[in-house]
């Protein structure tokens, strides 16, 4: 079966003009994500795991490499070169991203924050809220918090709202950046169940997990990243 996402020789460097520095973040990353399977990214801090996810989401502009995404119509798009409008379309309908941090409207109730991706697709407010409520319940978010903006929530609560928001729209490709980082074991268990469930539904996932046991339990494929050679060293090796 053709992979949903195929990343080839992806590299990302940050050029910081103010400091006059070139900082490599990840280098020569190769990976594949299949439908209904989870690929886990592992590696030490500084290996650029999050950068890879952000490049795929195009929050970062990759420096080199290809990121080939195969859509429902079997049409392949290189996310590195796709137009901004195409990326926005894919984010809207195909690619979901759950980060450790919640970026959302400061004054919106949790329930609406979760329901928003469905509303943006033009679904009715009633149905969208119902689905949002289901997910929040499933993720153990106390019902009294649903009508409150998540800005005041604890880290774990925020993260669950974020997960619910990322999962509600049932993307074809889901990027997960430490989705259980600040959750208690019971809730972590529920999240794991949920991930298994949507995997069974055929969603392709690329994930970073804090806990190795989650990688063992959930990953169908593991890609290990090593920290890239620092730019200064790179220059030295080139000139020597």
């Amino acid at each position: 079966m053709q992979p949903v996402l195929k990343v080839e020789a992806l590299s990302k460097q940050f050029q910081l003009y103010e400091q006059g520095k070139l900082i490599p973040s990840c280098a020569d990353v190769h990976l594949e994500v299949q439908a209904g399977a989870l690929t886990a990214l592992i590696g030490p801090t500084g290996a650029g795991k999050s950068s890879v996810l952000k490049c795929i989401h195009r929050t970062y502009l990759p420096t080199s490499g290809r990121m080939l995404y195969r859509d429902r119509d079997n049409h392949v798009t290189d996310l590195a070169l796709a137009s901004e409008h195409r990326i926005l379309e894919l984010r809207h309908s195909d690619i979901g991203f759950v980060t450790q941090f919640l970026h959302c409207l400061p004054r919106k109730a949790a329930l609406d924050v979760v329901a928003e991706p469905l509303l943006a697709r033009g679904e009715g407010a009633g149905g969208a809220r119902e689905r949002a409520a289901e997910l929040l319940a499933l993720l153990n978010v106390p019902e009294r918090l649903w009508g409150v903006p998540p800005a005041t929530f604890s880290g774990g609560e925020k993260q669950r709202v974020n997960l619910a928001r990322g999962l509600i729209a049932r993307p074809r490709l889901l990027l997960l950046d430490e989705p259980t980082a600040s959750l208690d074991p019971a809730t972590t268990g529920r999240v794991v169940d949920l991930i298994e469930r949507i995997k069974a539904e055929g969603v392709a996932m690329l994930a970073i997990f804090h806990q190795p046991e989650l990688v063992n339990r959930l990953a169908d494929r593991v890609v290990e990243l090593t920290p890239p050679v620092a730019a200064t060293e790179l220059l030295e090796t080139c000139t020597s």
Partner: peptide, 22 residues
């Protein structure tokens, strides 16, 4: 510079934008 807003804010490409964001 032009791009997706999250990219402009998290990975600005131009020296001026980097300064503005910083």
């Amino acid at each position: 510079e032009s791009g997706l807003t999250d990219q402009i804010l998290e990975d600005p490409q131009h020296a001026y934008t980097q300064r503005l964001v910083a």
